[in-house]
Structure formats: C-alpha cells, structure tokens
Amino acid sequence: MNSRRDFLQKFSLGIGAATLVATAEPVSAAKTLIPDAPKADKQLRVALMGLGGYANIVARGMKECKTAKLVGIVTGTPSKIPEWKQKYGIEDKNIYNYENLNEIKNNPDIDLVYVITPNSLHHKHVLQVAAAGKHVISEKPVADNAKQAQEMIAACEKAGVKFYIGYRLHFEPHTREVVRMREAGEFGKIMHVNNYMGFKSGDPNQWRLKKALAGGGAMMDVGVYALNGARYCTGEEPIWVTAQESKTDPVKFKDVDETITFQLGFPSGIIANCGCTYNFNHSERLHVMGDKGWAELNPAFGYGPIRGITHKGPIEQPDVNHQAYQMDGIADAILNGKPDPNVTGAEGLKDMVVVDAVYESIKKNGAKIFINK
C-alpha cells in the first residue's frame, strides 16, 4: 500500500467508498442519529486544497451530496488541473495555487476550503484560509501539536469562520449506533476499551515517513482513530496516558514512529488499551465492554463497509458514503443553522492534547503523563 488512505479505501472487502450505497434500513432507534436529508435549495460551495489520493475520494463522494458541492480546487501541481476540470466541472475562476490562495477572499462563489495537504501543512493552510474569510475543514490530524491546534481555533474565531475536522466516522451509522447504545446505558457501566488501527506502509520515500511533512508517524496518522474512538466509546476525556514505541525497521522509520501502543486512563476508572502501526495490515478494530453488554466494530475505521456486532446481535445499519455524509452534515450546520456536529476544531484539539502526552510518555520511557484540563 502506498498510503494510509489507499489502504483504508481498499481494506474493507475491497469496496471503495465511492461505490457504497445503503443496503439496509437503519433500526428505528437509530434513525434520529442519521443526519436528516438536508435542504436541497441551498448548497455549500467547496474548494479542495491538495489534490492527492484522499482528495480524489472526497471529490467522488461529493457527487452524492445533497447540500455540499465541489466548485473549486487549490493545487501546487498544474498538471492535475485539466483532469479535475474535466471530471468535476471546475471553472477557471475557482482554481488557485498555494501562492495566490489569499485571492480566494475575493471569490463569492466559494464558501469553504477543505485542507487535505500533508499533516504538517495543515496549520499553515488553515491560518491562510481563515485569513481569507472562508470556512475551513482540516483533515486529521488537525496539526503537529496542541499549541498549533489552539492557534488554528483562535484564527478561525477571530475571522468569524467555522472550523471543522474531517472526523467522518462521527457521521457513520454503525459508529453512531454504538455511541447511541452507550449513551442509552445499554452497555451498563463501561469497563474497558480496546482499539487498534494500522497498516503496512509501502513506498519508503512517501511523505508520511518524513517528519517535516508528516509531523509524526503511525500515532499522528492512524493512532488518532484509536484515540478518538476511545473517547466516543467512553464519553469521557482521558486524564492520564502511558505509551511505548517499538521499531523493527529503524532505517525506513528513522524519522517517524513505526508502532505505538498506548493506554488511556479515564475519570471513572476505565482504561483503554490502544495501538497503531505502520508495519502490518489487518489491524482495524474497536471493542467496548460494559458490565451489561459490549460492542465490536471490525472493520471499524476504514472507508467501509463498517461492520459491527453487540451483545444483542449484528448492528443493522446502512452502508453509506462516509465523505458524502460528512460533507452534507457540515453543510447542514453552516447553511441551515443546525447545531455544530462534534467535529469542530475543539474536538481536534482534544485529540492533540492526548497525542502530545503519548509522545511525552515515550520520551520518558513509558512514564504516566497526567493531562491537565
């Protein structure tokens, strides 16, 4: 696999996100958790910034959107422009590069920019988009560290624009059903969480293995899935972290972490065991256990289909296009005044606080790091 996103797209039974369609009606108790069909008379006009593999997946997914529409692109690779114009009907007036991005502020036909550039560029690019007065989505991880995330939130607040993170699973029906069951007390008291996410990285020259562009390795890239999952499985915020790193290929992974296991302690006494890796496949699982029931998603974090089972039986939820659901959900909030979904910059900051603590623990030989709220 050449990238995490290529892996995620292909991992779940080889079904690409762009081809997913609903295969079953959601159970009645979960219907309220699936985003309402947005109003079709208004559309959020979106430009994608960075035209790599995941941007292509988002663009294809947006063809299914009801309230979000792809209208623009920002790229540093001019050779990509003709194909994008042809595939998605992008007009010349909505095409920008990294040098003239500030000019987007004068374009009334673009409402939001979705930043899908390498991780360590998110901070710079979100600040630029906010300064241009446009709403912004940043892909995960939001930044290199919590300090940068705070700066991004502050810049967007100052500019009066909305700031979201690409937590697509917060819109995914199987995931939402697990959260609903936890909130309804169907698992009883949560006792333990066990999450893992990873894949075997391919090209040793890819940007994800260069710290200057990636910010970190497996923890930054896929560890946030296990971490964020632990937070929505418990409904709590961790108060301490311990972490360990293992590296079997110090040449390939000389700049970034290869495999990290970490433990999260929560106020109620729950402990979550989590892990992430860049060095083996078939590691995509979320498992939450309570004193009255349990749930497992496996696959849990890829582009679909997500599959799950609980103590009550299989989770019967529809397979959906994650990217379309995410974009329509965010558009609904911006255009129709709905409450912000739980994918704002603040959610990204909470993850980065923990990621910082994970790396601090590793530097201190696995010491317990207490998180100050």
Score class of each variant (00 low, 15 high):
S3I: 11
Q9T: 12
K10G: 02
G14R: 10
G16Q: 07
A17K: 03
V21H: 06
T23Q: 06
A24I: 09
P26W: 07
K31Q: 12
D36N: 01
A40C: 06
A40Y: 04
G52D: 10
G61D: 03
K63I: 02
E64A: 13
E64M: 10
C65N: 10
K66C: 10
A68Y: 04
V71L: 12
V71E: 02
G72Y: 02
P82F: 00
Y88I: 09
Y88E: 06
Y88M: 06
E91M: 14
K93D: 14
K93P: 00
E99K: 15
I104C: 12
N107W: 10
N107R: 10
P108H: 14
D109V: 07
L112Q: 02
V113P: 01
Y114S: 04
N119F: 03
L121V: 07
H122E: 06
H123F: 13
L127C: 05
Q128E: 13
Q128P: 00
G133A: 12
K134Q: 02
V136Y: 01
V136I: 07
I137T: 05
K147W: 08
Q148E: 13
A149I: 03
A149G: 13
M152I: 09
A154T: 05
A154Q: 08
A155W: 01
C156G: 04
G160I: 01
G160Q: 02
F163P: 00
F171M: 02
F171Y: 11
T175K: 04
V178Q: 02
R180W: 09
M181L: 13
R182H: 07
A184L: 14
H192P: 00
N195L: 06
Y196S: 09
G198Q: 07
K200M: 08
G202A: 09
D203N: 14
D203W: 05
N205Y: 03
R208D: 08
L209Y: 07
A214T: 00
M219S: 02
M219H: 00
V224Y: 09
V224P: 00
R231F: 13
G235R: 04
E237M: 15
I239Y: 07
V241K: 04
A243Y: 06
E245L: 11
T248M: 09
V251M: 05
D257V: 11
I260W: 07
L264T: 01
G265Y: 04
G269Q: 09
G269V: 08
I271Q: 12
N273F: 13
C274G: 05
C274F: 10
C274I: 09
C276L: 10
N281L: 09
S283F: 12
E284K: 00
V288E: 04
D291Y: 12
A295S: 08
E296R: 15
E296M: 15
N298G: 07
N298S: 14
Y303P: 01
I309P: 00
G313V: 09
P318L: 01
P318C: 03
D319N: 14
N321A: 03
H322N: 11
H322D: 07
G329C: 05
I330A: 01
A331T: 03
A331S: 11
I334E: 01
L335M: 12
L335N: 11
N336K: 06
N336G: 05
G337L: 14
K338R: 15
N342L: 13
N342A: 15
V343R: 03
T344N: 04
G348N: 05
V354A: 07
V354L: 06
Y359L: 05
K364Q: 15
A367W: 14
N372A: 10
